[in-house]
C-alpha cells in the first residue's frame, strides 16, 4: 500500500468505522446464508450428525420428485393468472381514477383500492376465508339469488375453485399497488399532448386509448418485470390460505421448500430446490426483459 492511499484511509477512518456494523451484518445475514445454502444443496445430512458431499444427487432427486413438479405447475398457474388479472384490474383502476374529477371522491376511491395492498396476507387471507365460508358473505349473496333451498358452497375445500380463489384474492390485494404505479405515470404525462388532441377534435375515449395508454407503456414494462421476478416466490398467500383439501392444486414451490427444509429437515433437497428457483427466476426475468426490450426504457 503506498503512502498517499494510506493517508487517505487514515483521514476517513471515522467513516470506515461507521460502516463496520453494516458490513458485518451483510456478511453474516446475507452472504453466509447464500453460500451455506449452495454448499448444503450438494450435501446429504447424516442421521448421526455430520454431512457428506453427494454431488448433484439432491438436484436429480428434485427433477424426479412429482411433488416438486406439481408445485412448479401450481406456482406458474397461480402466479401468471394473478399477474394478468392484477395488471388489467390495476390499469382499469388507474384509468377510472383519472376520469374522476371530484377530488374527495378520487382520493376515497384510491384509498379503498390501495388499502388491501397495505395489509398482511394473514389479514387478507383470514378475511377471504371467512367471507368464502359456508356462512360468509359470498354464500349469502348466492342464497339471495337462488332462494330458500340453497345449500352453501364450501369454497375453501373445493379443488375446482382453489386456484381461481388464489388468483382472485391475489389480484384483489395487489391491484391498488399496480394502480398507484400506473397513476404516477399518468400524472407525469405532458398536459399539452391532451390539449392539442382536443384541438384536433379527439374525444376523451380516443385520448385515453391514443395518449394515456401508449404513454405509460414504460411503466407497464416495469410492472411486468417486477411481477415476473416474484412469480415463483409467492409464499405468504399460500402459506395462510392453503388447507389439506386443496393443497394439491395450490401448494407452490416456496411453501413446499419451507415444509421440506424447516419442518421435515430434508435440508439437502430443500436447498437444492431453492437454488433451482433462484436460477429459474434469473432465467425467466432475463427472457422477459429481452422480449420487452426492457433496456430501451432508460434511453
Amino acid at each position: 500500500m503506498n503512502g498517499k492511499l494510506w493517508q487517505k484511509v487514515k483521514r476517513y477512518r471515522q467513516i470506515y468505522i461507521l460502516m463496520i456494523p453494516v458490513l458485518i451484518y451483510f456478511l453474516v445475514f446475507s452472504y453466509y446464508p447464500l453460500i451455506l445454502g449452495i454448499v448444503k444443496s450438494f450435501q446429504e445430512v447424516k442421521l448421526l450428525g455430520g454431512s457428506q458431499f453427494v454431488g448433484l444427487a439432491n438436484y436429480m432427486e428434485i427433477f424426479q420428485d412429482s411433488q416438486y413438479s406439481q408445485a412448479f405447475v401450481n406456482s406458474l398457474i397461480v402466479g401468471c393468472g394473478t399477474f394478468v388479472l392484477q395488471f388489467v384490474w390495476g390499469l382499469l383502476i388507474a384509468v377510472l381514477l383519472n376520469e374522476i374529477r371530484t377530488k374527495v371522491l378520487k382520493s376515497f376511491f384510491q384509498t379503498v383500492t390501495y388499502i388491501p395492498y397495505l395489509l398482511s396476507w394473514s389479514v387478507v387471507g383470514g378475511l377471504w376465508i371467512t367471507i368464502l365460508s359456508p356462512t360468509g358473505m359470498v354464500n349469502g349473496f348466492l342464497e339471495l339469488l337462488q332462494g330458500m333451498d340453497y345449500s352453501p358452497i364450501v369454497f375453501m375445500s373445493e379443488e375446482s375453485f382453489a386456484r381461481m380463489i388464489m388468483i382472485f384474492t391475489g389480484a384483489w390485494k395487489g391491484a391498488g399497488y399496480f394502480a398507484a404505479l400506473f397513476m404516477a405515470a399518468i400524472v407525469g404525462i405532458d398536459g399539452s399532448l391532451y390539449e392539442s388532441a382536443r384541438m384536433d377534435g379527439a374525444t376523451r375515449i380516443q385520448q385515453i386509448f391514443r395518449i394515456t395508454l401508449p404513454m405509460i407503456k414504460p411503466t407497464m414494462k416495469v410492472v411486468t418485470v417486477l411481477s415476473v421476478m416474484g412469480v415463483l416466490r409467492n409464499f405468504d398467500q399460500i402459506f395462510v390460505m392453503m388447507n389439506a383439501a386443496i393443497s394439491d392444486k395450490v401448494k407452490n414451490l416456496l411453501v413446499l421448500i419451507y415444509e421440506e427444509g424447516i419442518i421435515q429437515f430434508n435440508v439437502g433437497t430443500a436447498t437444492a430446490a431453492a437454488t433451482i428457483v433462484l436460477i429459474a427466476t434469473l432465467i425467466i426475468t432475463t427472457i422477459v426483459k429481452k422480449l420487452l426490450r426492457y433496456e430501451d426504457i432508460y434511453d
Binding site: 446464508p33 445454502g37 436447498t271 431453492a274
Partner: peptide, 8 residues
C-alpha cells in the same frame, strides 16, 4: 430463497 440456511 435462502430461508433454510437463514434458519440454520
Amino acid at each position: 430463497l435462502t430461508l433454510i440456511s437463514v434458519y440454520q
